[in-house]
């Protein structure tokens, strides 16, 4: 098979995938970039307005509220997940009875939809009948009034996001922990290393790449947070619990401001790219390193 013919054949095989992502994701995303420089509402002719949409978004206090909410929730959710996931990965790797069963238990939230999760957590924290509310009351602790206080609303959103996505972080870290060769621990044990030293000098350094990957993916996906907030608080009270995706949705589909919504959309894209820049560079180098020119 000639190389040229080989390449054409390979391109034909990747064509369906490339076509669908180009048509459904890439071109629309570029169109949003164009829209973000236009003044446009649904059904009206567009008009070039330069950066006016961006300056309108950036001077909107609701945008900043949404940005701060998103940043806080993402930072809390991703790092708590990382710590819990790491702890669970170490616990599972240390040998447990009925490990396959426990793995199924831990994976269960992965199957739950955001909508169902909201039903569950609303029920747990219901002000009058919630089992968690009752437990908090019994312990003399303050309860969550997520319909009244924005911070409570964001807290419960963060809690339910962690619950939904912990399986992902855990699996990545657990797989990485299992791939650490056992001989390393034997060698460390022979050298008389304490459990803490073994963790600090063997486990942790070898898990760092997986931790970075898990964090990166969770940053990018947590940044898109929409359904949990939309269904839990609707962004209220008084738009105080909106996150960026909810802000964008409201601008576009409630206020018909496609220009500012598009500008918000591109700010989201740029932020995602910024977060992933190091990762993209690494992948890029790896890909072109093993490809003969």
């Amino acid at each position: 098979m000639s190389e040229r013919k080989g390449l054409m054949g390979a391109l034909a095989l990747v064509a369906p995938v490339q076509a669908i992502v180009t048509l459904v994701i890439f071109i629309p995303a570029l169109y949003v970039l164009w829209l973000s420089f236009q003044s446009s509402t649904y059904g009206q002719a567009a008009q070039f307005v330069g950066l006016a949409n961006y300056s309108r978004v950036l001077s909107d206090p609701y945008f900043w509220r949404a940005l701060i909410n998103t940043a806080v929730v993402v930072l809390v959710v991703v790092h708590v997940e990382l710590l819990l996931g790491l702890g669970m990965a170490l616990l599972f790797a240390s040998g447990l009875v009925a490990r396959p069963l426990l793995l199924a238990v831990v994976l269960a939230p992965y199957a739950v939809s955001e909508v169902s999760a909201v039903v569950m957590w609303r029920f747990l924290f219901d002000p009058s009948i919630g089992i968690v509310t009752q437990a908090l009351l019994a312990l003399g602790l303050p309860t969550l009034e997520w319909a009244v206080f924005p911070s409570h609303g964001l807290f419960i959103v963060a809690l339910l996001s962690i619950w939904l996505h912990l399986p992902f972080t855990f699996i990545i870290l657990y797989a990485a922990r299992l791939s650490v060769p056992g001989e390393l621990y034997e060698a460390a044990a022979i050298d008389g290393a304490s459990p803490w030293a073994r963790f600090r000098r063997v486990t942790l350094p070898l898990l760092v790449p997986a931790m970075l990957i898990a964090m990166l993916f969770r940053y990018i996906f947590a940044f898109r947070l929409f359904s949990e907030v939309w269904l839990m608080t609707g962004g209220g009270p008084a738009r105080q619990t909106e996150v960026l995706a909810v802000y964008l949705y409201n601008e576009a589909f409630r206020y018909n401001q496609f220009g500012t919504a598009s500008a918000t959309g591109w700010l989201l894209v740029i932020a995602s790219l910024g977060l992933a820049l190091f990762y993209l560079r690494k992948i890029y180098k790896e890909m072109f390193a093993n490809a003969p020119a």
């Binding site: 390449l7 390979a10 391109l11 990747v14 995938v17 490339q18 992502v21 459904v24 994701i25 890439f26 629309p28 995303a29 169109y31 949003v32 829209l35 990018i220 940044f223 898109r224 929409f226 995706a245 964008l248 949705y249 576009a252 496609f258 919504a261 598009s262 959309g265 591109w266 989201l268 894209v269 995602s272 790219l273 992933a276 993209l280 992948i283 890029y284 890909m287 072109f288 490809a291």
Partner: peptide, 22 residues
């Protein structure tokens, strides 16, 4: 081919809500 594979990775960074607009 490598470029097109890279494109697939890049695509994953675009948030779904963005493309609902157009």
């Amino acid at each position: 081919l490598s470029s097109s594979a890279f494109f697939l990775i890049f695509i994953r960074l675009i948030p779904p809500i963005v493309i609902t607009l157009p």
